[in-house]
Simulated assay, not measured.
Amino acid sequence: MEPWICATCGVEHEPGATPPARCAICEDERQWVPAGGQRWTTASELRAAGHRQIVREEEPGLVGVGIEPAFGIGQRGLLVRHEAGNVLFDCVALVDEAGADAVAELGGIGAICFSHPHFFGAAVSWSERFGGVPVYVPEADRAWFPRRFGALRTWRDRLVLAPGLELVQVGGHFPGSAVLRWAEGAGGRGALLVGDTLQVVPDQGWLSVMWSYPNLIPLPPAVVEAVEQRVLALDFDRLYGGWWGRVVAQDAKAAVRRSLERYRARAGGPLPDLAPPTADG
């Protein structure tokens, strides 16, 4: 029997003759259950519907792993290539042979970790495809992981996965929300992989944070400040969000600072009186 996959969030659940009664991740106020009720699918059904793996380079040493057409909440994972073993940060719901073979040609996967529970995806299937590699979940978010799995490992605060690859728990969106600092990224200037622990927004060079993105529930300014302090203590110049194209290519640390300062100002004080631009700009 195949694992059941929630059709809304794309997180894999235990296999069985019938699907689970509920998806706890979607019933939480940070996600949603469709008006028509909980729906389930499987990897076989996704492949039959035309979904396939997309594996493409983001920069030297960093590869995006996604699904086309998009499924669930549409995220893509990031594979950091490292001589000590590649690390997959965030997962998608599907593992297909072509995608797994492409990842294998890049050196496979040595460990899997996440920004937060919405991006658990098919983590167990990805792990099993590569020999049962460890899957790291922060202690604070362990209860959200919906599958029994012997290679599951918990961590807290900080976890060095390999030289120059460090997971850091910053909180906010979830208590265990994390970022992965890749020291060799951005040509050695450092890159930060964030999923939507920080959300890269359409306005170029800006980010935001939320308790619930789909339901538009903000975080308190004090929590935003705590997230900011933990993130700005890290060295990085580039930042990768959780979707294709959501990247702050340079000066990302300054972008985090000004973005979260703006967030706190709007949340805690009067709104600015911004006039529309004039015809001559």
Rank of each mutant, 00 (worst) to 15 (best):
R158Y: 08
W4C: 07
A35F: 01
A49E: 12
F89S: 03
E128T: 06
S44F: 06
A226W: 05
Y263N: 02
E59C: 07
H118D: 10
Q250R: 15
Q229D: 12
R156I: 04
V135G: 00
R22C: 05
E139Q: 14
E128M: 07
V209G: 10
C23K: 03
D273P: 00
G195P: 10
G205R: 03
G205V: 00
A143E: 15
P60T: 04
R39F: 04
G74I: 10
I109G: 02
V65N: 04
Q229P: 04
R47N: 04
A93R: 08
C113K: 03
G131H: 05
G16L: 04
P15Y: 12
L180R: 07
R153H: 01
C9L: 05
R266D: 13
Q199V: 14
V160S: 15
R147K: 15
I54F: 04
I54R: 15
E261K: 11
V160M: 12
A70N: 09
T8H: 06
D273Q: 13
D280Q: 14
A123I: 10
P220L: 06
G74F: 06
V223W: 00
G187K: 01
V137S: 04
G36C: 05
P69A: 09
Y136A: 05
D90F: 05
K253Q: 11
R39T: 12
G241K: 02
F114H: 12
V170Q: 03
I112H: 08
F149Y: 15
G132T: 10
W244I: 11
G188K: 05
E97T: 12
R129T: 09
L165E: 05
G64H: 09
F89G: 02
L152F: 06
L192D: 09
A265M: 13
T197I: 06
D96G: 05
A178W: 00
A191L: 06
R142L: 14
A183Q: 12
T197N: 08
P270H: 07
P60N: 11
L193E: 09
L232Q: 10
R181E: 06
W126S: 04
G205I: 02
V133Q: 08
G72C: 09
E45P: 01
D280S: 13
W4N: 06
G110V: 07
E59D: 10
E225A: 15
R81L: 15
E12C: 10
R56L: 11
G164T: 01
A24N: 10
P218D: 14
L167W: 10
G37T: 03
V201T: 15
A24I: 10
R39D: 00
A98P: 04
A104D: 13
W155F: 14
Q169E: 15
L219E: 05
P220E: 14
F119I: 00
R22S: 14
G50C: 03
G121Y: 02
D235S: 11
S115N: 09
G164A: 00
V63I: 14
R22K: 13
Q38Y: 00
R246I: 00
A275G: 10
R156S: 15
R264G: 07
G74N: 01
C26K: 04
G245I: 03
